[in-house]
Structure formats: C-alpha cells, structure tokens
Nucleic acid binder design. Structure first.
Lengths: 190, 190
DNA sequence: CCTTCTAACTTGTCGCTGACAAGATTGCCT
DNA sequence: AGGCAATCTTGTCAGCGACAAGTTAGAAGG
C-alpha cells in the first residue's frame, strides 16, 4: 500500500493539491507547472489533467479548498471568542499559515471564478466576517452594516496582502498577530 | 516618421510597456507573454529581451513606473487637500485607474524586488501615505505613528485589492470612491 | 564623403510547458 | 469469469522564455 504503484495511485488528487501547496510556497503561483507537480507525485505528465482538466481547474480546486479552510477558521474564532478582533486575527493567521491557498484565492484570473463549488465555499467563508461584525455594538456600526463589514474585511485583507508581499517596513516586526492587534484598534474604537 | 521601420523603432521600450498594460488589462499578469508584446509592437520575438533582459525585467520596469505614478498621485492629493481620507481615496483611484500597474506592483514574485530603481520609487511612494497620517490629530494616533500608518495603508490597500478581484458583494455598488468614503469613516473616528 | 563603431533589432534554436489524442492498466460490479 | 468505467501512460503539437549569432541603422570622427 505504501509502495508506488504504476497505476491507481489511490489519492492522486489530494497528493497533487498538496504538491501544489509546496510548489507555490517555494516559488509563487506564477511559476507553478503541472508537469512539475506530476514529477513530484511520481506520475506521468498528463496525469493531472485527468483529475483537474487543466491548470485553471487545479487552481480552482485549490482556491475552493482555501475558502473552506478560511470559513472554518473564521467560524471557529467567532464561536470561541465572540469578538470581531479575534476573527480578524484569525483571518491574518490563515493568510500567513496557508500562504499558498491565500495567494490563489484572491487572484480570480488564475482560476474559474464561476465554478459552483468555489462560489459556495467563497460565500460561506464570507459569512464568517459579516457575522463577526454583528458582534459589534449597533451604535458603532450605524444603520447599514455593510460599510462596517467592508471596512473590517479590507483592513485585515490589506494587512495580510501587504505582509505576504513583504511590502511592510521592517519596524512592524516579525509577528503578524502582534502587528494586527496594534493596528486594528483604530477601527471601531471611540 | 510615422511609418513602421524595420530597425530602430525609436521608442520600443515605452511601446512595450504600454502594450504590457493593455495585455494585462485584457487577461491579467499571469497570461502575459513577451512574444505577444513583440507582436503587438510589430517587432521580432527577441526584441523585448534587448530592452528588459527577461520577463521579470520588463515587469520590474512596469512596477517601478507604477510606484512613481502612485507616489505622484498620493503627493498631489495630500498637497491639494491636506486630508488623509483624500489620500486614501487617491490610493484606491490609482488602483482602479492603473489596474495593470497595481496588479504587478504588489506581486514581488513576478519581478526583481531588489532592483535599485524600483526600491527608490517604492520608498518614495510610501512617503505619501505616512505624510498623510501626519495630518491626523496626535490624540487619535497615539505615541507611535507606525500602527496608524499601517492601519490606513491596510484598509485602502485591502479595499483596492478586493475591489479589483471582484470579491466584494454587488451591494457595494459600482463606484469605488463612494464605497471607500462610506467605509473609511470607521477608521480614526471617535 | 567615407569609414568605423555601437546600439537596436532579427533569425535561429533549445528545452520546457499546457493541451489534446489515443492507448494501456486496474479494480469494481455482476 | 467477464465486462466496464475510472485511472493513468505514451506520444505529439504549438507557444513560450532564454540564449547565441548575425544584420542593420545611424552617429561620431576624419
């Protein structure tokens, strides 16, 4: 069972997605190659096409997996703490811990953004943040909750993107969680 | 002078950068091809290499141009209004109006982030936002201005990224400037 | 006017990649 | 035991980035 078989790898789909995560962590999503993934998995160069159709199919699956993981992480933080700040911290932690997924998820030119499974996972992950905003006192949010949701999403998403891109100055430090907490206090605070 | 010459195009470097903007606006940076740019400019497939070395060289030049444009836009907004909110609006407007540049600038895996000209332009553009934060009353910022700068940068950068990625819900509307103003009031407001 | 030199551009080629077509193998189901 | 569908392989093609070597335009200097 542990031996490499010529046929019927058994879990090739999952293996390829894991290899994609490794490859993207090494060299970014732009340098990703299906043939390299096949080599890493020890299968022929055309094997990935059977499971994902084409390159964008693989990235669609990876993005879907990412949105599911993000949705679970946000829901967990909200249920555990009931605090919007902690949901935001979980958002940034997800981006840092699942860098490869995150770097694909918000790059819709790389995958098929109309895929039904992806849309469902994406919508579900969005609930995590909007439910988190619902924990805020109503007088801080105002009549319409949408701008507050966008503000919360924007600040943590922007921080995560800048952090991953290495755009932030070194004075920010090496721990993203500390930096997020120091920054997010300017939002929704009287 | 207007005729296409076989040799000595005259302004090929600028022509190729403009073609890259068009191509990225059409299909995103991932699909960019040097040979396609050469075809658009009416030159041979190897002509781009002479001006930019390789693909990452071209994207480095494009990113540098983008940081220069962004720096100018932010400085202009700050000098015109002296208001941090307007600087933030200018940031988002730059991202929307110069989508191709913006999509490359914050993707350092696509270019050479250590290029001296790029670093200089990047640092200069960063001043625009930090000087904008300096217009805030000191009691809203606190002793250390850095977290406030990161907060301001994050919220506008996150909004711009989400907007360009089509990740925001349709209820946000079609005008990014209106949406930014509705959102940014949650930052630095008592 | 003529030579010479250099930057700008072309042609040719290589290995790699994604996509597709057609064939081989395997395990499941009856 | 036999069929069958899913899984994976081999073979092939055009497009791409990078490199090497050759060609041309135009400027610089006598």
């Amino acid at each position: 069972m542990r031996e490499r078989r010529a046929y019927h790898h058994g879990d090739l789909r999952r293996t390829l997605l894991a290899a994609a995560v490794t490859a993207i962590n090494e060299s970014g999503p732009a340098a990703l190659s299906l043939r390299d993934l096949a080599r890493r998995a020890g299968v022929s160069h055309a094997a990935p096409a059977h499971h994902f159709g084409d390159k964008s199919g693989l990235l669609t699956a990876l993005a879907t997996e990412g949105f599911e993981l993000l949705g679970a992480a946000l829901a967990d933080a909200r249920e555990r703490t009931g605090d919007l700040l902690e949901v935001g911290v979980a958002y940034v932690r997800f981006a840092v811990d699942h860098r490869a997924h995150f770097e694909v998820m918000f790059r819709p030119d790389l995958y098929d953004a109309d895929d039904p499974a992806l849309r469902a996972a994406r919508d579900r992950s969005g609930e995590g943040l909007s439910l988190g905003v619902a924990t805020l006192p109503a007088d801080r949010v105002g009549g319409d909750a949408l701008p507050a949701q966008i503000a919360a999403w924007s600040i943590v998403h922007g921080f995560a993107t800048l952090w991953l891109g290495g755009a932030l100055p070194p004075e920010v430090g090496t721990d993203p969680e500390t930096a997020v907490r120091a920054m997010a206090r300017f939002l929704f605070t009287p």
